[in-house]
């Protein structure tokens, strides 16, 4: 055969031509738990965006009966100030998601950057960066967040910064670990042999190939961030009243649990559902992005025999 003309040999072996992300998506939604999580998350996002419009009452609208038990008018009852708990839970979704998004965003960017630099450069820089991450990691996350809030003062913004800083080492570690293995891949060496610069190698080749663990970690961290926010608010160093936030509402309901159990139960359930949704989606993503899983599916497609 001649090298200078295209021949019949060049048709791809795998017929279906699908992008990697669509393949990931189809594996993800075929997982029932993950699908359930995705639905819950979808509802949450709707609540966060349109909470005020959907809620039957304002978040801080008062004037109802105090401590009213759940009824048709107030499906989750009312609280100590006569506010509708259902409306507050619905509107509180925004706070929770906002805290999750901002704090995970901070740790995602900072941790990925640190992890990329430490993993790719190696040597003393790696040692210094990762030892400082270890120190940060050694503090219990809530304690660290309290310390940061103690310095900056209690507010939702500071709570988000605190959670973001506290989560950074997790991302840094995950990214560094993945970078260390991807860095040794032959294709990285191949691109280097073409004369590619370090920046190009890191951004175009290493980053996309460590995306999978980062995505999984992001979804799991979202759950933890929401929990941490709830804990901080519960301790009084996070969201300040009267903002509707699930952790804060839980804290308010704690003292009156025998009088009005609904004040604590429903925000608690909301936290539980959200955290679980993020976790099952994270687990589903882990499976869907796992190259082993994918190769099993691919080999099913390509036939057998070695």
């Amino acid at each position: 055969m001649s090298a200078t003309e295209a021949t019949a040999d060049d048709r791809p072996v795998v017929d279906e031509h699908r992008s990697q992300w669509r393949q990931t998506w189809s594996i993800l939604v075929s997982n029932r738990m993950a699908l359930f999580g995705l639905v819950v998350l979808g509802l949450l996002v709707v609540a966060a965006l349109l909470g005020e419009l959907l809620a039957p009452h304002g978040a801080n609208a008062q004037g109802f009966e105090f401590y009213a038990a759940p009824s048709l008018d107030h499906p989750f009852g009312t609280d100590n100030l006569g506010r509708d708990v259902f409306s507050r839970v619905l509107i509180g979704a925004r706070t929770s998601l906002q805290v999750g998004a901002v704090s995970v965003g901070i740790s995602l960017v900072a941790g990925t950057l640190l992890g990329l630099v430490a993993g790719y450069r190696g040597g003393w820089l790696d040692a210094v960066l990762m030892r400082s991450m270890d120190v940060l990691f050694a503090f219990p996350i809530v304690l660290l967040a309290i310390a940061i809030v103690a310095v900056l003062g209690p507010s939702i913004t500071n709570a988000m910064i605190a959670i973001g800083v506290a989560f950074t080492p997790i991302f840094a570690r995950v990214v560094r670990g993945s970078v260390l293995s991807v860095r040794e891949e032959v294709f990285v060496r191949a691109v280097r042999s073409l004369g590619a610069s370090d920046v190009r190698i890191v951004l175009r080749h290493i980053l996309p190939n460590v995306a999978a663990p980062i995505i999984v970690q992001t979804s799991l961290s979202f759950a933890f961030a929401i929990l941490t926010e709830a804990a901080l608010s519960f301790l009084g160093v996070g969201v300040q009243p009267p903002t509707p936030a699930w952790g804060l509402m839980l804290q308010e309901g704690r003292g009156v649990i025998d009088l009005a159990w609904w004040m604590g139960l429903f925000p608690g359930l909301a936290i539980f559902l959200t955290v679980m949704a993020f976790n099952v989606v994270g687990d589903g993503l882990r499976d869907a992005l796992d190259p082993k899983q994918r190769s099993i599916i691919e080999s099913r497609g390509q036939g057998v025999d070695a």
Partner: peptide
């Protein structure tokens, strides 16, 4: 791609397809 005997129409395909 043509020089090495591959059909240029497949430039947008991924390595695992070959």
């Amino acid at each position: 791609l043509e020089t090495v005997g591959l059909n240029p129409d497949y430039a947008s395909r991924y390595p695992h397809e070959f």
